[in-house]
Simulated scan of single mutants.
Amino acid sequence: MPIGSSPLGTFVESWNPEPLIDDEVLSAAPAAALSALLDQLEPVAGEGESLPPLWHWLHFLRWPKQNELGEDGHPRKGHFLPPIPDRQRMFAGGRCEIVEPLSIGARTERASSIADVAVKQGRTGEMVFVTQRNEFRQHGRTRLVEEQDIVYRSGRSAGDHPAAVDTSAAPRPDGAWQLGAQPDSALLFRFSALTANAHRIHYDSPYVRDEEGYPGLVVHGPLLAVLMLELVRRNEPRRVRSLSFRLRSPIFAGEHLVVSGDPSPDGAVLQVATHRNARHATAEVTFA
């Protein structure tokens, strides 16, 4: 759908933010903190070692002033936030090419830009799909290139969710690799802190029920992606060369989930299941 021919499209028709360049020395502290969150006995990676896939999300964080947050906890304005009224944001998926793993302790440059903007019609109305591209460089070389797909809509949509969270039912997934978890509110709080995510759906139970229409706290989509790659890290010695993932439907705090995967000679297919859905999130990886 041409951008300017739709109601939401009129808000983003002339929106074309300039690229941004940031730099940061990748500290070992965030990797140690995420390792603890994942119940690892020791940090997964330290100074001079390779950052696991997707763990770069712990770096280059933005902390807006408290008075710059909206009612939902997200920033009201931002360089790469489209000018949509009453904006609702959803992380839909992404892709990542890892030419070389990022090294902890090295000064790193990130170049961010908008790669694509598209207006589409979904089951719940009109949506704007924004693809943000991030390129990471160390020692003058491009090490990692990712694209993140973010979906925006105006207003709230209740969606199709269970009336209550079932904390006893468990999935029965297939897959040569399996990793079980039951994320609780403390885990979600810690992951929000690690990723500078103030969205209230991850920690404010009254808000998530009364304002968003969910039956409970929502497990972060990025956390589901990290868990899928963690399953690979624990089972496959070869390095991940590329990955793609899609976040399909929410999981709620207290639900039993299982991350499962089936390896092949060149990669693996992964998914996250609960008793409600066998494919809340999916991913594909290839090995170097």
Rank of each mutant, 00 (worst) to 15 (best):
S264Q: 06
L270Q: 01
P250K: 00
S205I: 13
R141V: 14
W177Y: 06
P171R: 03
E126W: 04
P183R: 03
F80Y: 05
P2N: 14
F252V: 08
S192T: 03
H161K: 12
L102P: 01
G4N: 12
R153L: 11
L243R: 01
V226H: 07
A193G: 03
Y152V: 06
T286E: 14
D266F: 13
S168C: 15
R241G: 15
L179N: 03
S5H: 13
L102G: 02
E212V: 01
A170E: 15
Q66W: 10
V285D: 04
F245L: 06
A288M: 08
Q271I: 06
R276M: 11
A193P: 02
I98C: 07
L41A: 15
A268F: 05
E126P: 00
T131I: 06
F191Y: 11
R190A: 12
G78H: 01
R153V: 10
Q138M: 05
D22F: 11
V165W: 12
I201V: 13
A32F: 04
S249Y: 01
V128W: 09
A92C: 03
G70L: 13
P83H: 08
S112A: 12
E13P: 03
S192Y: 05
G254M: 00
S168V: 14
P237M: 03
S6D: 03
P85Q: 12
A283I: 01
V151I: 15
L38F: 11
A106D: 15
Q148C: 12
